[in-house]
């Protein structure tokens, strides 16, 4: 495609839950330093694709290649070691660990070598987490848990960051901060971001390219500007209520 070597390329992947096919023939790629977004209705298979990258569930057919290496059959923990970090849907933080410990889990790939530096960055982004540093994750409010999940993913110094609905349950102002921060990280460190969002307008504004998923199939793809201007996309995901 546009770049000779994509950082992540997903080729013809099919994923099943039991006998139900959740993804059929999905081909998606992300070039180094790109922000790519995946939009689509609830139940279209966006989160499934995110999880498939991590091998839970495994792709039944097709290949997933990260930085030239086939990771389709790699165990999940080995995939994480390649510096792919994920902020999963539904804030899967460690509820009995404190905020600090949750962040340490994220930084464990480097034996906490960069913990101070990176946690400062996370606290700059989410000052709320600093106020709650010794509180257990499970006692945080919903939105704070979401911040923690994103913060933990960032602590891993990822090369590829997978964000599954980062804006879920967050105040409008915080969403803006997060989107700005993603853009900033992307610009400054060349971080590649793969973003799943319900807030399609915000996601397309942020991303370089986007894919539209319908019922487990990638139905459309293109530059964000094209998708934003596409009448079909607008009708399905951008309009209705947001005026």
């Amino acid at each position: 495609m546009s770049e000779p070597q994509a950082l992540l390329s997903i080729e013809n992947v099919e994923t099943y839950y039991g006998n139900i096919r959740a993804l059929s023939g999905v081909t998606v790629h992300a070039n180094p330093g790109e922000i790519v977004t995946l939009i689509g209705a609830n139940g279209a298979g966006k989160s499934t694709l995110m999880m498939t990258i991590f091998g839970m569930p495994r792709a039944r057919t097709g290949r997933i290649i990260f930085d030239g290496k086939d990771i389709t059959k790699l165990p999940t923990h080995d995939i994480a070691r390649l510096r792919i970090a994920q902020s999963p849907e539904g804030r899967r933080i460690f509820p009995r660990m404190t905020v600090q410990e949750n962040l340490q889990m994220g930084a464990s790939l480097d034996d906490l070598k960069y913990f101070d530096e990176d946690s400062r960055m996370v606290f700059d982004l989410f000052p709320r987490l600093k106020e709650r540093i010794n509180q257990r994750g499970g006692t945080l409010s919903g939105g704070e848990q979401q911040m923690l999940a994103i913060g933990r993913a960032l602590m891993a110094r990822p090369r590829l960051l997978l964000l599954d609905e980062p804006s879920l349950g967050l105040a409008p102002l915080i969403i803006k901060h997060i989107f700005e921060a993603i853009k900033e990280l992307n610009k400054n460190t060349g971080l590649t971001v793969f973003l799943v969002e319900q807030n399609a307008f915000g996601a397309l504004k942020l991303a370089d390219r986007g894919y539209v998923m319908v019922n487990g199939i990638v139905k459309m793809s293109g530059s964000s500007a094209d998708l934003l201007a596409n009448p079909e996309v607008r009708a399905a995901y951008l309009e209705g209520g947001r005026h």
Binding site: A41, Y237, L238, E239, G240
Partner: peptide
Amino acid sequence: AGLNARES
């Protein structure tokens, strides 16, 4: 939460 524009 988690709904797109149309669903909301």
